[in-house]
Amino acid sequence: MSVRIAFVGKGGSGKTTLSALFARHLAHSGAPVLAVDGDINQHLAQALAPGEDAPATPPPLGPALPAVKALLSGTNPRITSPDAMIKTTPPGRGSRLLRLLGDDDLHTRHVTRVGGVPLMVTGEFDESDLGVACYHSKLGAVELYLGHLVDGPGEYVVVDMTAGADAFASGLFTRFDMTFLVAEPTRKGVSVYRQYREHAEQFGIRVAVVGNKVTGEDDLLFLKEQVGDDLLTHLVQSDWVRAAEQGRAETRVPDALEPQNRHALNVLRETVDAQHRDWARLHRHAVEFHLRNARAWADERTGEDLAAQVDPHFVPGPAALS
């Protein structure tokens, strides 16, 4: 099946590095994969191409939100205009649905191969945004993209999310089949774990903890005591990763990664491959968050009853493509 994976965690936990390692692991196996940089600090490109000083990145998706809305609204009669479309507007009959890495304007313009992995970026939070916008406004384009994406069997979307509990500041967290929380073996490293688990459990989203920068049995025991059975696997402190962060050329050889860390990536792959996509549940979550946003602010801002954008007879998925 197709799998959408989010990497979350405290800032500095190594979630961007692990997002890149896993995306490269999938791509190296020949699997169709899209990596998405959804962090306010846009460092995924550097992590995907550690041997390059300034890897080329695609035009960011966030500033292109009006064009994204115009494309995805399609001929959906429930959307009166692209301006009335908000980040949570769910697809309906007539909406433009996308295939992963398909031949459409969005993928053609906003995806570039970096380090052998197709990459999409949201864009940086810059000075022009200070005092007038929040970073989640940039993530709105990604939320709409995932809402209109019909990914197929054996395809993967890997998203490096914002740090800390900010990942739950929008409905984007319900767009994933699996969430990996990257945690260092420290109190701060596991501080957001219970928040993530509590929020995710409400929506049936599985959160698994991936220990990172583990240096010995004491570190591993600490993680087990803190998160229990939610600890899926762990990565040890990595000379290979440090070399990658320093831009050494030998890091382009994936087999040079430490055996325990290669094993951990295999565990992540086996775990996501065991997930089952429930399109109806995914759509229900999308509709719920859309109605929340409509009532809270969007109806007033647009001057419309945005509950009318919900098509009660539509469920996204492979059947909807026909």
Rank of each mutant, 00 (worst) to 15 (best):
V253M: 06
Y193A: 15
T186N: 04
L282N: 07
V68G: 08
T271H: 02
P58Q: 13
T108V: 04
V209L: 09
V114S: 10
D230V: 06
A298I: 10
D299I: 09
L34K: 01
W240H: 03
G14N: 01
L268N: 06
D239P: 05
L144V: 07
D129Q: 11
E155I: 10
R194G: 13
L291V: 14
T122F: 04
V182K: 01
V33M: 09
N266P: 05
Y145G: 07
L223V: 00
E155A: 07
R175S: 12
N212M: 02
A6I: 03
T251M: 12
R242D: 08
V272L: 11
G171I: 02
S29Q: 15
L144P: 02
R281T: 14
L181E: 04
G51Y: 09
E217G: 08
Q195N: 13
V207W: 02
S2N: 12
S95T: 03
L149H: 11
R96F: 02
L21Y: 09
K138G: 14
H283D: 12
I5C: 12
G94M: 13
L257V: 09
I79L: 08
V3H: 00
G216F: 09
N261G: 02
A280S: 07
R109L: 07
N266I: 04
N293P: 11
L26G: 05
V157Y: 10
E124L: 08
Q42V: 15
A243M: 03
K138P: 12
T271M: 01
G94K: 07
F22I: 08
R4Y: 07
T75L: 14
T122H: 01
